[in-house]
């Protein structure tokens, strides 16, 4: 079975994000980078499929040189090889360019099933998986929380409001992983030692025959407005305080 897992390197959820003074992006020199948590679910599911059905797992990532760490982490978890699409021309890639790059890399590989996170926690766009499926012309199963593989097809569960969908499709297909799909394993020490020797192909845009033809440009990144100071309501008794609270909610906050 040929399994692909796409991963993105994102700032750690604990990282303190500082916006660049010129609003062109975030300061990325001093933050800790991790694998996008939704992609981890994808990698874990890929590894579980491999363990059960044989085959191999290829990790594909678009990102600068440092994204190699994330590929190696996935290899340390147990994936077999990696493709690192790295090109300064792709630094400002939007979802479309990223999906195009992934599609170009994956097209040339045998693929039965492709995992993506349902979205990346940095830009939250949630489009790459769907675009990738379209570009490859294969079915997409998004926001998946359970997956059963049955030889030439997969059956998945996708929660929707108040219910869940059970969807079945033939292979190959793209599956985007949602929280709940599994519990990602920790990279083991022997895994880390082996990861170094596993092959990772580095490809640039020219080699894949793609251009940074972005559909969406980031106009400006601005930090959220600083939270205004709270207000303490004083009063002699509860009734008086409640009256003042009601007045504030009506007149100042205009909430009621």
């Amino acid at each position: 079975m040929n399994i692909i897992a796409c991963v993105k390197q994102v700032p750690d959820t604990e990282a303190q994000i500082k916006v660049k003074a010129d609003g062109s992006g975030i300061e990325d020199g001093q933050i800790k980078w991790v694998m996008n948590p939704y992609d981890e679910f994808g990698v874990e599911e890929a590894l579980k499929l491999k363990e059960k059905n044989g085959g191999d797992v290829t990790i594909v990532s678009v990102g600068p040189a440092r994204a190699m760490e994330t590929i190696r982490t996935a290899l340390a978890m147990g994936a077999d090889k990696g493709i690192h699409i790295s090109d300064p021309a792709l630094d400002n890639a939007d979802a479309f360019v990223t999906a195009s790059a992934l599609a170009a890399a994956i097209k040339g590989l045998p693929h039965d099933i492709i995992f993506c996170g349902q979205r990346a926690i940095d830009d939250d766009s949630g489009q790459v998986g769907a675009m990738l499926a379209e570009l490859l012309g294969i079915p997409q199963l998004t926001l998946v929380t359970k997956l059963d593989f049955a030889g030439s097809s997969v059956k998945v569960i996708r929660p929707i409001e108040g219910a869940q969908l059970s969807i079945e499709t033939s292979l190959p297909c793209v599956v985007t992983a949602q929280k709940g799909l599994n519990e990602p394993r920790y990279a083991s020490l022997p895994g880390i030692m082996k990861a170094k020797k596993k092959p990772v192909d580095v490809k640039n845009a020219a080699a894949l025959g793609i251009a940074s033809d972005v559909k969406a440009k980031v106009a400006k990144v601005v930090p959220p407005p600083a939270r205004a100071a709270g207000k303490i309501i004083c009063g002699d008794d509860a009734a008086q305080k409640a009256a003042e609270l009601a007045r504030c909610l009506r007149e100042e906050a205009k909430a009621i």
């Binding site: 760490e69 190696r72 982490t73 340390a76 990279a187 020490l189 880390i192 030692m193 990861a195």
Partner: peptide, 13 residues
Amino acid sequence: GFSRDMVDMVLTE
């Protein structure tokens, strides 16, 4: 057999 990126990965894990 060791290198700095390997050690970094060990520490991160």
